[in-house]
Amino acid sequence: MANKRNTFLLIWILTAIGCLFVFLKYASPKIFQVLMAKDHPMPTPSTLMMWYMIMGVLAGLVYATTSNQKFADFLSFLLPGSGHVIQSFLRNMLFVAFPVLVGWFVYTWSIPGAASPVELRIQHPTLPQDFEKLENPFRQKDDQAQRKSIEEGKILFQTYCRPCHGSKADGNGPFANSFRLRPINFQDPGTIATVVDNYLFWRIKEGGPGLPSEATPWDSAMPSWKDDLKDDEIWMIIMGEYDTAGVMPRQREKQE
């Protein structure tokens, strides 16, 4: 095929773009369902799909313009050619399809539809200054006192935090499914393992209402515990929480 003129180049490129669309829309959700062992399909996120489609269209155009020869072939499909039956049929199809497609785009764009809500939020807002200087009193203590605080903290954690954050601190408590902003999974290395004790102290004491507005405090179900728990109890919960989740805070004041 090297030097043979490909008069169907336009059709091939359009077909490839069509295939890409079908793959992203229908095949990929099924493939990821199997790969990730889920019991439901995993639809391609719409923005990701949009970028893949843009890249697909651009790649097609880039390919068509790699040489003047190819580009001439690409366009020549639209010219009244040798009268090949399939070619003229496809050409006519294309002539009809283009305005229809434009009309369809305008239609889908202008009919009213319930837009999905945009709910962007910062998950790790900056620690307020008032909390920066605080020290966890139990981290300094000797082994035995530390272990005691961990054990007491675990009891408090299991009593007050478990219903949402779960017995295993994995964010899977009995109430977890009922809050749209899911309780944090503390076992996840991207959560409490990346912050210091003080950060947790701030989060437990002030809760959702204490968040800055970029972290959407109105959606957070994290209670503010300042009226119900003493500071020492909060520090103990933090000790117990790290132990339950099996992770360490970012800064360790003292090695065991």
Binding site: S46, T47, M49, M50, M53, I54, V57, L58, L61, L101, V102, F105, T108, W109, I111, G113, A114, A115, S116
Partner: peptide
Amino acid sequence: GLIGIGSCFLWICGEV
């Protein structure tokens, strides 16, 4: 190409 890309945007935006 640009028209195509633009319409892609619109179509995605309309999706619920």
